[in-house]
């Protein structure tokens, strides 16, 4: 029964009890992207940023201290794994939980910086992430209450109507967790040091946003 078309032919499905993960060509590409960037976070060496002193010729190479570096790497890998889970999840609530893990690890990556200004930004993003739990989990709960199921397999194909509010809530929730349309605001994040790991924030939020668009079109 797990071979019906989702938004393309389903390539394969992995059942975990009620939660049946699946891969379609679209989600498989997203998954591979997440896997690629996770591998980059594991393998790459961190950047060494240059501090230029104004008025002089001096250029210093800044080194990020060891514990911060390790912590950022751990957070980036966790973020990548959560994004991988979110891209192939076949259950709406499961997707929501993976998404909130992405949000939390993003906050972790930003907060590892000791800069007061960056910490201020991290706090604002953290507040948005926590407010986003209302639309995210609320949307999933409204889907469950009005359709009687959370499985994307059951909801696919348009046989069961999912209310507009639930879809809007889900999109808003993912926007809050991944801050996807707030890229402009993310300029503050890039002041945080640690290039390959900072990249993970952008990649993961883009991936979960693409995935939620796929989900609301499918259901």
């Amino acid at each position: 029964m797990f071979d019906l078309p989702i938004e393309g032919p389903a390539l394969f499905s992995i059942p975990f009890g009620d939660i049946v993960d699946y891969a379609s060509p679209y989600t498989l590409i997203l998954f591979l992207f997440a896997a690629l960037f996770t591998a980059l976070a594991i393998l790459s060496r961190p950047e060494q940023h240059a501090d230029i002193i104004f008025g002089e010729d001096g250029v210093y190479t800044g080194r990020i201290p060891g514990p911060e570096n390790r912590f950022q790497r751990f957070m980036a890998i966790a973020c990548g794994l959560a994004a991988m889970g979110a891209t192939v999840s076949g259950d709406i609530f499961n997707f929501c939980i993976f998404t909130s893990m992405v949000g939390l690890t993003c906050i972790g990556i930003v907060a590892s910086s000791g800069n007061r200004h960056v910490l201020n930004a991290a706090f604002e993003y953290g507040i948005v992430t926590m407010i986003a739990m209302i639309p995210l989990f609320g949307g999933a709960a409204i889907v469950a209450a009005t359709t009687g199921t959370l499985s994307i397999w059951e909801l696919a194909g348009g046989a069961i109507a999912v209310p507009f509010v639930a879809k809007a809530f889900l999109v808003l929730g993912v926007m809050g967790e991944g801050m996807a349309p707030f890229y402009v605001a993310k300029a503050e994040i890039t002041r945080a040091q640690g290039a390959p790991y900072i990249l993970m924030i952008h990649v993961s939020s883009l991936l979960i946003f693409l995935r939620i668009i796929e989900i609301i079109i499918t259901i």
């Binding site: 975990f16 009890g17 009620d18 939660i19 966790a78 959560a82 499961n94 939980i97 993976f98 893990m101």
Partner: peptide, 12 residues
């Protein structure tokens, strides 16, 4: 039946 949720939750 929904064990994967709980795994992710503890990871969070």
């Amino acid at each position: 039946t929904r064990g994967l949720d709980t795994i992710v939750e503890t990871s969070i």
